[in-house]
Each structure stands twice: as structure tokens, then as C-alpha cells.
């Protein structure tokens, strides 16, 4: 069996689904962040796959590298936010931090 575009897409979809699931259901902010990382990676897989099968050279790969750098920056900022969250609420449980509601 030859591995085609569909396989990549399915893998990416599974990964996206897992990431989304983690983002929605986890209460721990770190775990939510990890879900976001999973979604980003799902997107990366898609980019590379489309690039490879679409005959567009290395455009996809270049964009993927951008995304990875972006993810690093994002992780850094997000972890900072989490730390702040912890300082203010003494927890990393996102359910507790619902002051936006009021």
C-alpha cells in the first residue's frame, strides 16, 4: 500500500481532534497549552503534505518552520501567562479563572 495524501490528512485530522479535545476538556492550563501544540502540529503535517503532493516545492516546509518558531514564541508567552495566572489565583485550573464572566 502506498502512502498517499489521504493518510497524511487522516493523521493530521486525528491529531487535530486530539488537540481540540485536550484543549476543551483539560482543566490544567499546561495541558490546554499542550492541546494547542497538537493542533499546531496537525496543521504543520497538513502544510507539508499539501506541499509535497501539490507540487509547490518547499513552500510548505518553510511555512512549517515558521509555525514551529511561532509555537516556541507562543509557548513562551503562554507559559508566562500561566505563571501569572498561578500568581493571581494560586492555581493553574482554568475553570477557577472565570473572572471574565463578571
Amino acid at each position: 500500500m502506498e502512502i498517499g495524501l489521504n493518510h497524511y490528512l487522516v493523521l493530521s485530522a486525528i491529531l487535530f481532534g486530539l488537540g481540540l479535545f485536550a484543549m476543551i476538556t483539560r482543566r490544567n492550563a499546561i495541558l490546554v497549552l499542550m492541546g494547542i501544540e497538537l493542533i499546531l502540529n496537525a496543521a504543520n503535517i497538513n502544510l507539508v503534505a499539501f506541499s509535497h503532493f501539490g507540487g509547490m516545492g518547499v513552500d510548505g516546509q518553510v511555512l512549517t518552520i515558521f509555525v514551529m518558531i511561532l509555537a516556541v514564541a507562543e509557548a513562551a508567552v503562554a507559559l508566562g501567562i500561566v505563571l501569572n495566572l498561578y500568581n493571581n489565583f494560586a492555581t493553574v485550573d482554568v475553570d477557577e479563572a472565570n473572572t471574565m464572566k463578571d
Binding site: 481540540l20 484543549m23 476543551i24 476538556t25 490546554v32 482554568v94 475553570d95 472565570n98 473572572t99 471574565m100 464572566k101 463578571d102
Partner: peptide, 14 residues
């Protein structure tokens, strides 16, 4: 609907 929880919002989004 305005629970203040980001996850609820994402769920609605989805």
C-alpha cells in the same frame, strides 16, 4: 452562555 470559561467558548465555536 457567558460562562467566562474559554473552553466553553471553544466548544461553542466548534
Amino acid at each position: 452562555f457567558q460562562t467566562g470559561k474559554i473552553q466553553t467558548y471553544i466548544a461553542f465555536l466548534v
